[in-house]
Design a protein around this nucleic acid. Sequence first.
DNA 1: ACATAAACATACATTGGTGTATGTATGTAT
DNA 2: ATACATACATACACCAATGTATGTTTATGT
Lengths: 187, 187
Amino acid sequence: MRARLIAAAKASLIEVGYGRTTAVAVCARAGVTRGALFHHFQNFSELLAAALEEVCLGISARLAAARERHGPRLRITDLIDGFWDGIGDPEFKAVIEVWLAARNDPELTSGLQPVIRHFANLASPKENTELAADLRGNSEAIAFYRLMMEAMIGMALGKAVTPGSQSLGHEAAVIGLLKDIGIAKGL
Amino acid sequence: MRARLIAAAKASLIEVGYGRTTAVAVCARAGVTRGALFHHFQNFSELLAAALEEVCLGISARLAAARERHGPRLRITDLIDGFWDGIGDPEFKAVIEVWLAARNDPELTSGLQPVIRHFANLASPKENTELAADLRGNSEAIAFYRLMMEAMIGMALGKAVTPGSQSLGHEAAVIGLLKDIGIAKGL
DNA sequence: ACATAAACATACATTGGTGTATGTATGTAT
DNA sequence: ATACATACATACACCAATGTATGTTTATGT
């Protein structure tokens, strides 16, 4: 049942956004009452944090799968595609929304802290040894990686705020340019 | 009085975020009652839209001022600095938050539509003739512009979700890399 | 001075949200 | 079979939000 609530909260976040994801709505979606919700979670924020953790795990898994597809023969273009596979996923919108909301909600923030830390570490060349190995301690590679990530996050946000749009008009151009730059720099 | 309410709403959005910007809070900040608010605005969303318009006008003005500083001698590094001056402004966080919130709030969306359209046009090489002139119809320049904007928006979001941080650790590296790339491509 | 409109304040209504208290059903161990 | 724990449902409490109705003050025109 706990898993059912988490799944319902996740689906709600992704489908109707943070603002419309309420205890009432999640319970309706899961087909249980709030009594059950509050039996399993101390408060609603705790459920939200668990749901977001699911979202982040899913995205992390996509990132890991992309790197596994190529193993030690990983090329920069594969790395770019892999990261865009994760960040460009519509589910990333939930990450953006909840993280922003947590900025002014101490209860939500405290529940999210481990999730945020884990995900941030995964994205940080300082903390993620696999990623650090990919970048080989090369400051130019690290700067490029940062540029790539920021551009992808920017595009994810653009998708999140654009009604009905499954993709932005310039996605391919930006991804293509990132690949050109990566190749030109011998990364 | 109307202006006072708009200024209070804008300040609230920037300071405590969208989630804590309520009619009660804005009125307290403006030193008036809700009777006055609802006299001047049909509903609260209308006030929020007006406040966000103010924010967007401020950012647009910063972008315009940057281009005026250099006139026809505008170089790519100046363009990058100018854009980062606008997008990197902490006020841009309010833009992100409200746009995201509007995705699932029809009332807010309808009030924001003209603001969004105007701002999006300003950022689009298709709609902004000055920007189009800067880019000279060069598809590589346009792709680079898009990459730059997305990276800046990504960093603005990063700043928005990072507590206490006035800047990200890798801002200078990303901006520096963008400049290098722009120069290397003869843009 | 009076009448009217605009601008504001106050009090109230309604709604929708989170969470609590209590009850009931189900599962498990003895 | 009984006792207890767990998992769920129901009813209720409380609060904070937006918005409405009404009253009062201020500004403006004649």
